[in-house]
C-alpha cells in the first residue's frame, strides 16, 4: 500500500508579497509542456492535503499571520519550498518597509529555488529535491534531460 504512494506529492501554494511572476511560473507547471501530474505531483486546494508548501515573495506584513496559520494547518511531514529570489530573502524588495526577510527564510524553507522568477524547470528540480527529502521516490526523469517538444523556441 505505502509503496503505491511513493511518487505522490501534494503542493499547496502560498503567496506572500510576490509580484506574481513566480505564480505565473508555478502555474506553468500545470501547462501541457511541464504537466507535473505525470510525476505524481499535484497542486492541492488545502494545506490539509499538502506535503509541500511552496512560498513566494518577501513576506508582506499583511500576509504573515495567514501564512503561519496555513503552515500550521498542514499535516506532518510537510516541508516548505521557497520559490524565487524574493522568498529567498534577496529579491528586489528586500528591505522595503512592509516586506520581511523572505517568505522562505521566515517559514524555514528546506529547499530554495533561486531565480526571478525561477523557470518552470528549476521549480521542478526544487520539487524533486523536496520529494526526496520527504522520503518519496524522485520522479523517473530529470527535467533537464528532457527534449523540448517540436517547433518551440528554446526554454
Amino acid at each position: 500500500m505505502s509503496n503505491s504512494f511513493t511518487h505522490s506529492l501534494g503542493i499547496r501554494h502560498l503567496v506572500c508579497g510576490s509580484c506574481n511572476g513566480c505564480e505565473h511560473e508555478m502555474n506553468a507547471l500545470t501547462n501541457p509542456f511541464y504537466d507535473i501530474t505525470r510525476d505524481g505531483w499535484d497542486v492541492v486546494a488545502s494545506p490539509r492535503h499538502a506535503d509541500v508548501i511552496s512560498v513566494t515573495g518577501p513576506m508582506s506584513a499583511a500576509m504573515r499571520e495567514a501564512a503561519q496559520r496555513t503552515l500550521a494547518a498542514a499535516p506532518a511531514p510537510c516541508l516548505v519550498l521557497a520559490v524565487g529570489d524574493c522568498a529567498a530573502g534577496e529579491g528586489p524588495w528586500a528591505g522595503a518597509p512592509d516586506a520581511g526577510r523572505g517568505a522562505g527564510i521566515e517559514l524555514g524553507a528546506a529547499v530554495v529555488v533561486r531565480g526571478c522568477p525561477p523557470t518552470p524547470d528549476a521549480i521542478r528540480q526544487g520539487l524533486r529535491e523536496a520529494s526526496l527529502l520527504i522520503g518519496r521516490a524522485a520522479p523517473r526523469a530529470d527535467p533537464a534531460d528532457e527534449p523540448l517538444p517540436e517547433e518551440l523556441p528554446a526554454r
Binding site: A62, A96, P97
Partner: peptide, 11 residues
C-alpha cells in the same frame, strides 16, 4: 486587497 503590499513607493 493590500495583502501583497511591500511598501514599494516609500522604498
Amino acid at each position: 486587497l493590500s495583502y501583497s503590499r511591500r511598501g514599494v513607493e516609500a522604498f
